[in-house]
Design a protein around this nucleic acid. Structure first.
Lengths: 175, 175
DNA sequence: CATCAGCTAGTCAAACTGATCAGAGTAAGA
DNA sequence: TCTTACTCTGATCAGTTTGACTAGCTGATG
């Protein structure tokens, strides 16, 4: 399964030459809305929900897989269920010569669920989860002690007025 | 089958409430690691991958469902596949008397995939996606024009040194 | 107008699910 | 030590779903 067949490569090349996004029409919207509601829904269930033929749904799912329209890691687990009830941002200021070293160090901290590099004064922005405020302090200390990190600024999230969502965005696909 | 008395039921309820987190042991870790790798994996596939009996996996999945250990909306769709290649934070300063109105307005903007309320100087922090820098400007304008919003500060993400991940966290479950 | 890609609607064998059950191991309490 | 309550295992069974086919239809394109 390692090597791509010639046909696969050709298809990918064609797709990129056509400069289209893998997801474009009303069928994609319907299928993905179903998947967004429950990613474990069976093909047949999606077919019933959307009113599409089973083969169509099956073909689309295969296409998404082929074109990597779906993330490798599906984020279905609620950190709260792991006992990690609070989340926060830790903004880090770096020694600009040691960015890679710093990222390497951060990668080893499990509580960092994501790390972003924004334009602006902050060098790295880490999204972290923790058991409680005390635990959050521990995590932010761990971050501060990573090599190449000069200073950190932690800010806890009090509420999540809009939880992560994809459905509004999917609804905008009109074809 | 003997009927449970009210006391029995109460005791059971107490016991389940005493349970700290729905996810705790090595079995949970294995099952969830499999789900994290591919949330559409069949029960049988998870059973093979983890070496657990099929019934065990089935029982755990039912429990997760019952105890809401999994998020309602699974985030499997890559915004890039929708043609939304850039993401950013828009920090908003609010008229403190009209927070609810502001959130209501933000909810109507599809490009806002998440909105957080951090402790500190920023009132609301919106995670947004957009087609290109020009599109990002449009979205941040839309946010700025929401009722109750006084000022915004947009910062684009240049890189994502650590993409959203759950696996490191799952690996810490030791039982 | 002929071609072609993509959706629909069938079929079939193979795989999977949900619901059982009995048996075994284990932890907690009497 | 002997229950009792749990839970994981391994098994079966009927019903469902999948993957891989088929053929027919339609709209877009050259």
């Amino acid at each position: 399964m390692v090597n791509l067949t010639w046909e696969d490569q050709e298809e990918k090349a064609m797709a990129s030459r056509r400069n289209t996004t893998p997801i474009r029409d009303a069928i994609d919207r319907a299928v993905l809305e179903a998947l967004d509601a429950d990613s474990r829904m069976t093909i047949l269930a999606i077919s019933h929900r959307t009113g599409l033929a089973r083969g169509t749904v099956q073909a689309r799912l295969e296409r998404y897989e082929r074109e990597n329209a779906l993330r490798d890691h599906s984020v279905r687990i609620d950190p709260t269920a792991l006992g990690l009830g609070i989340s926060a941002h830790v903004a880090a200021e770096l020694d600009q010569h040691r960015i890679d070293v710093a990222v390497e160090g951060l990668r080893a901290i499990p509580e960092i669920v994501e790390c972003l590099a924004p334009a602006g004064e902050t060098d790295l922005l880490c999204r972290v989860v923790a058991r409680d405020p005390d635990d959050l302090y521990r995590v932010s200390e761990e971050i501060r002690l990573c090599p190449g990190i000069l200073r950190t600024r932690t800010s806890m999230f009090l509420r999540q007025p809009i939880p992560y969502r994809m459905n509004q965005l999917l609804a905008t696909i009109t074809d």
